[in-house]
Write a protein that binds this DNA or RNA. Structure first.
Ligand SMILES: [Mn+2]
Ligand SMILES: [Mn+2]
Ligand SMILES: [Mn+2]
Ligand SMILES: [Mn+2]
Lengths: 221, 221
DNA sequence: AAATATTTTTAGATTTGTCTAAATTTATTT
DNA sequence: AAATAAATTTAGACAAATCTAAAAATATTT
């Protein structure tokens, strides 16, 4: 048995190790992600280690064990399937679903998640373009580049976003960018790394480097 | 803020006071329903009383306050809408949904439950025939009688069941009774209050008094 | 009305997840 | 390499929800 608090820690460890470069995740990183104290994290790490969900050496840092990784996949699967349900079936916007999915992912029932998967038509990606692990925990990998690394003159389709917070997604809504939007890079300003893009072959928009670093594209030319 | 444990106690108090005759609910009744000890219940009653969700006098028993009743309605609404979703959309059987809904009812989001309601087409009753409170907490009352009180020669449509446990619902499945099934009472055995019914105008079945006391009918003649 | 039985509450512990403050270890500077 | 800074762990405490055993209140029986 794993508690939903433990599940949240597992997910935090997975997310941090995905986004960062180092293999081992630090106590303070987890504390910041979970909005808690380093002391609380140490307590929990001891517990997760005892349950063999993580590999942990005092002062060295932590990584998920094979069992922990499976748990993380199961959680991502549930989180992303529920987000897909909320957007596809209940007409939520992509910036409204994260907090609700954060609760729904803890519902315990394998039957439920598999039926939900079937009901949604076995989607491969969630409303933010993140891959949905299948029932075996396997993830579809997609060819994608970060917008900030693209050259002037090239273009692509928006397939995902790196950040999921309301403020960022809302900004994209305002600019007119969503999953599936076509972008063509028309100009780069070296001074602050901001860029100009043509959106769906019509209006142009200026995007800050902050924004460019958080948008994934599938190149089309 | 109300915790999901508190929510479960509120629901237990509501359910007990509905099924029983007395207005006030006792500590032991709650303890049995919640599979916990009387001491734990007393602790929680003090807490719920402090939050003004119940009206509580030491040793006297307890009832829901107006605020507590509202909370109970909100919970029933969520529980029953989720059960409807599981059966209508995910093809669960009516005897498989209770435990999952027991978890889903604690998800916090008014927007979610109202969108779910709309998505399901504003159903008035759940898969067990229980009324679903609307967004204002109002319940549709239905004309129904308990099968055990019906006279020989009369008939009706099954509109609900009093118990929700797997074993009981499974038994009904085996006999061929579900919501909407037509029953005609053909014989009563005074010895043990068991009865014979004609199901959907074809086969006959024998039902024990235990079963008859837990089936609600809408009389058709 | 007294004795007995039942129900309910209190007292004192336990587990889980959390916190602050202090101590320890590791990393970085000088 | 010593000093300083940063990261991490330990110590000790707290709130929530639970438990067992004992005490107190209420209900029932004689
Ligand atoms: Mn999310
Ligand atoms: Mn997502
Ligand atoms: Mn139910
Ligand atoms: Mn029901």
């Amino acid at each position: 048995m794993i508690t939903s608090t433990e599940e949240d820690y597992i997910k935090a460890i997975f997310n941090i190790s995905q986004s960062g470069k180092r293999e081992l995740v630090g106590t303070n990183q987890i504390a910041e992600r979970m909005s808690t104290t380093a002391a609380s994290v140490t307590d929990m790490l001891r517990k997760l280690n005892h349950k063999e969900l993580i590999v942990y050496e005092k002062y060295k840092g932590v990584k998920l064990s094979p069992m922990g990784t499976m748990q993380a996949m199961s959680l991502l699967r549930k989180h992303r399937l529920w987000e897909s349900f909320l957007v596809e079936k209940l007409d939520f916007a992509w910036d409204e679903v994260h907090d609700i999915a954060e609760q729904l992912e803890h519902i315990q029932s394998n039957d439920l998640v598999n039926r939900l998967d079937k009901y949604l038509g076995y989607p491969k990606f969630d409303p933010h373009g993140d891959p949905i692990p299948d029932a075996q925990g396997t993830i579809t990998i997609r060819n994608q580049i970060v917008l900030s690394t693209m050259e002037v003159g090239n273009g692509g389709l928006v397939v995902g976003v790196k950040k999921h917070d309301k403020d960022f997604l809302n900004h994209l809504n305002q600019v007119g960018i969503n999953i599936g939007t076509e972008l063509e890079l028309t100009h780069k300003y070296p001074y602050d790394q901001s860029i100009k893009v043509k959106i769906d072959n019509s209006e142009e928009a200026l995007l800050s480097s902050e924004v460019c670093e958080n948008i994934y594209l599938k190149k089309i030319r």
